[in-house]
Design a protein around this nucleic acid. Sequence first.
RNA 1: GGCGAAGUGGCCGAGUGGCUAGGCAGAGGUCUGCAAAACCUCGUACAGCGGUUCGAGUCCGCUCUUCGCCUCCA
Length: 484
Amino acid sequence: MSSLHIYNSLSRNKELFEPIVPGVVSMYVCGPTVYGHAHLGHAKSYVSFDVVVRWLRHLGYKVRYVQNITDVGHLTDDADEGEDKIQKQARVEMVDPMEIAQSYTRSYFEDMDRLGVLRPNIAPTATGHIPEQIEIIERLVGKGHAYESNGNVYFSVGSFPSYGRLSGRTDQASLQAGGRVEQRSEKRSPSDFALWKRAEPGHIMKWPSPWGVGYPGWHVECSAMAMKYLGETIDIHGGGMENKFPHHECEIAQAEAATGKPFVRFWMHNNMVTVDGVKMGKSLGNFVTLKELFRSFDPMVIRFFILQSHYRSPLDFSHSAISASQSGLEKLHDTMRRLLDAKPGSGTLNVSSFVRKTEEALNDDFNTPVAISVIFEFSKSLNGAMDRQEGISTEAAGEAIAYLEEFAGKVLGIMKSREELAASEAGDGGETLAEVMSVLLELRKEARTRKDFAMSDTIRDLLLAKGIELKDTREGSTWSKKKG
RNA sequence: GGCGAAGUGGCCGAGUGGCUAGGCAGAGGUCUGCAAAACCUCGUACAGCGGUUCGAGUCCGCUCUUCGCCUCCA
């Protein structure tokens, strides 16, 4: 079997992955700022990293997966302008900021649960880790990497020479020339960033600190929580590409300046969801929330749609693209249903070659689109075998089921469980419907035996009008409820 | 202006020096009372212009176009 290679944003190359501690992986992924419902962009990110975690576990690693919840608002820009976004939303909804944070945190996890995203082992909140953040800031001030100015504390970028290595933005002078970073009198250098902010009158979320009452800067929460739960050097840190600069750059600077050790070994960045080629984002307002999407599509279809493209590629959203994915996924589920019902035969299947190809795809920087293409090839080959007179042996069927349940199910999360497959076939009516259907199918079978095709077709057409589709196979008729 | 990514058949979307990606849609066929499903076959795609090479969608250069980041953002 091939070994896992991960594209490391730091080196811009695929590298052989091995954790610091054999058998154990420490992984941190930037979580959402909870002031609104999650949209498709969040889904792409967290589904992608979910597969990373699932694949690492499949490989036998014990993974500690930490994903923060940012529940303290940041300003709308880094130059002390604008407003705390959570506080702003709280004013709009006329509730306490913490109510905003908590209700959207719940909303976030509801959506992720529906997408089959496994919960992180630890989901720490920024507000729950103020002392840890203050401690890092104190260390940085003590070491001369940060300075206090009028109740604010800034990180001195000039004191950390490798700043910009991740994003390739090493020339701070040019950054200032064309950038939008505003010159602040309190900062010694325009690219210095805030570690702690003085709370202005009316600011609700605030805490006491050695520098007065205030609140932490955005970047420091991730460094603090990652190091608290995963140690000073972690194996994998993931996040959205748009956070490479400045967020991840700042995280590195804070952590490494404080500890003197490398912060992250593998940086992973997922690409954006676009709409008509333009990034989907809260700021642009061109986003579609998951709750809206779930009204039209099974969450598993959304998950499948996301995994059909690579995590480092942008994914263009359109209703028709998701519909195409829906058809494809249904085909896969149909194959599984058929496999589970297959009568024992004598044919064989070369399942191991598909296992190997799937493993190779996932070991190659989590190439889910290729893994899915292998699963489709398997589906085709399996259906072909089941079409033949000799069918497939019980042993071959067992291997096929195991393959689909492990890779499509457990790793990619796009295969429904046997119970779900049976339930979706039966629809919401459950057992009663199944019983009624068996009676109808029996009647229709008798009609067909008498060659009363008019009656047979009438039954089928009437059922189809109610959303129930019949299929006649060599082994008898099957039915399934189509989604409206 | 700086840093970075990308342009693939009707659509979505992998690949990255020679070997079919895959899905959706479409055409033909097998099977079927018919249909659906399934299976088989088919489209001869890689922005443009040069170059390297026995051979380039894949490497190099230039041009065009698009997008991301440089402010909060998955």
